[in-house]
Every structure is written in C-alpha cells, then in structure tokens.
Computed example of a mutant assay.
Amino acid sequence: MDGEGNIKKVNNSVQPHDVWYAKNTRYCVTFNEFYQPLKKGGRILVRFIGDTARKENFCLIRDTNWHHVPETFKVDMIKCIREHFVIPDGDGYDKGILKRVGKSVRQYRHDLKKAFFKPLTKTREEICRAVPDGVPRDSWIRLVDYWYSEKGKKFAECGKEARASQNHVHTTGSTSYANIEEKNKRELTELEVFKQTHKRKDGSYVKDTATEKFVLDGDTYVESELAINPTKPKVQIQNEAFSKLMYGEDIPKRPLGYGFCVKGSDVFGVHGILRKEAFESGEVVLWLSRIRKKWKIWKRLL
C-alpha cells in the first residue's frame, strides 16, 4: 500500500532490508481469528520481526527475561512495525506481535550461545572478548555472565530436558500451522493437521518418536467409531480421536496443532467450542465467508 492508499501485488521476494528501505510503502497482512499472520504478507512480517529483534536499539539481549524489557522499547517496536505494515487496530494484534518479538529474541540468544559460548574450550575472559558483530560489549558481557550463573545453568538444563522429552517432531520447517490450513484452502481437523505437519516428504515419520503409532491409533479410532456410528460426521470423530489420544481428560495450556500464540482457552473456551461445533456441523463455510466479508469492508475503508 502506497501513501495514497493504493494497493498493488508484489510478486518478487521481499526481504527485511526491502521493508526497512521502502519509502511511502506498507505491506498488507491478513490474519486469522487467532491473530496469526497468513500468506505472503504474514511471512514478510514474521521475517521482519526476526530481523528487528536482533537490533539493539529495539531489543536488549542482556535482558534475559522478556518481562524485564522496558515498556518504552516494546512501544517503539509496535510503532516501528505498524509504520511498515498494514495491521488492524486492536490489543490482540499488538500482543501477538510482542509475543513473536520475544520468541525471536530468545532464538537470537540461542544462536549466539551456540556459536560463541564454548566453556569447554575457552576461558570466561576469552568468551567475553569475542564480542559478536552488532552486539554492544556491555550487553555481551552481561549475557555471558548470565550463562555462567547458576540460574542460567538451571534453565539450560530445563531446556535440554524439555527438548529430550518431545516425542513428536514438527517437519514443515518455518511454514506455520496457520499457513498449512491456508495452503489447503480449507479448515483441517486436528488429526489432519498433525499428519501434515509431522510427516516427511516421503510420507514417513521421524524415527524414535511416537508419531507413527499415534497416527495409527488415531486412524483405528476413526474407523471403529464410523463402524459404530456411520451417520456421525467424520470431522467430529477425527477431532475426538486427536483430543482423546493426545490430551486424555486434560485441557492443555498450549494446544498442539494450532501454532504460536494460541492458548487452551482459545480452543477449549466458549469461543473455541462454538467455532469447532460450527466446523464439525458444516457451518464453517458461513463462518469463513463472514470473515472474508469483514476483511473486504476493512480494505475499502483504508
């Protein structure tokens, strides 16, 4: 979108530096009901956020706790992103952006630690002297001190244990769950999303994980339920199979298969239940048409 509100389609690749140096231009982004960015505009936004999170004037990597980052930095981040992207007004969008910034900052610190923190081969002084490009010296020293601290070591061990306990591995790379559904041009059941996001290109599943058995158990559950209740919608049975096999009787804080920023209340709360019932009863077409209609009205207002 140019300064006069005219919209044109961009066919070529758009990198973060293109966004930074674009004059009188903002990139339009569409979102789903979970405030997740979709399509090409969404990918451009996510990459730009990742690039912004690596700039010291916006994010302080020495603040190992995202909640300790000054509010002024977060406000500047929101303003900067809205200067370069057309994003609807609302707290939900701003919160979603900040959550992605926090995630990008954590990933950046992880990359720095993996590349430069070598306590087995280098002394503390040597690591402190090897300041990475683009990182202020005082921030780097403070970050190294944190990695050496008992608190830093404790959280590192917790992270390793959490990673080792994962028995399902996502295989679609940087493609988000939201864009998986967008690519299919329809809403998928939870079991279908799980299959598509955990299967390799050759159709196999990652070895030494419980994924293949989970999918087999899910398909068996669906077949048996259809044999007992042939009139019951298959969509409903597939969602039931996934929930029972994955969660049992518990309600997860972070549901699997919905992507970043989605909480348990978004799926198992009132809004989530109504949305799922509409999908399972076939009314999701009407649901989506209403969303598209609102988006078209909003674009005309711009």
Rank of each mutant, 00 (worst) to 15 (best):
N6M: 13
K9T: 11
V10S: 07
N11L: 15
D18Q: 05
V19M: 09
Y27S: 05
F31K: 02
E33S: 13
F34E: 06
Y35C: 13
Y35H: 15
V46T: 15
F48R: 04
T64H: 10
N65V: 11
V75F: 06
D76V: 03
M77N: 06
K79R: 11
C80K: 13
V86F: 11
D91C: 12
Y93T: 08
Y93K: 13
K95P: 00
L98E: 07
V101R: 01
V105Q: 04
K113H: 10
K118Q: 13
L120W: 06
T121N: 11
R124M: 08
R124L: 10
E125Y: 10
W140K: 03
W140L: 08
K154I: 02
A164Q: 12
A164V: 04
S165H: 06
S165Q: 09
N167W: 04
N179E: 08
Q196I: 07
H198S: 02
H198Y: 03
H198G: 00
R200C: 00
K201T: 04
V206K: 07
D208W: 03
E212P: 00
E212T: 02
D219L: 08
V222Y: 01
E225P: 01
K232W: 05
P233V: 13
V235T: 15
I237V: 12
I237E: 00
E240P: 00
G248W: 08
G248C: 11
E249T: 14
D250P: 01
R254Q: 11
G257R: 02
Y258K: 01
Y258N: 00
G259T: 07
V270S: 07
V270E: 08
G272F: 07
K276T: 14
K276I: 05
S281V: 08
W287E: 12
S289D: 15
S289P: 02
R290M: 14
K293N: 08
K293L: 12
K294L: 15
W295Q: 15
K296L: 10
I297A: 14
R300P: 00
L302I: 15
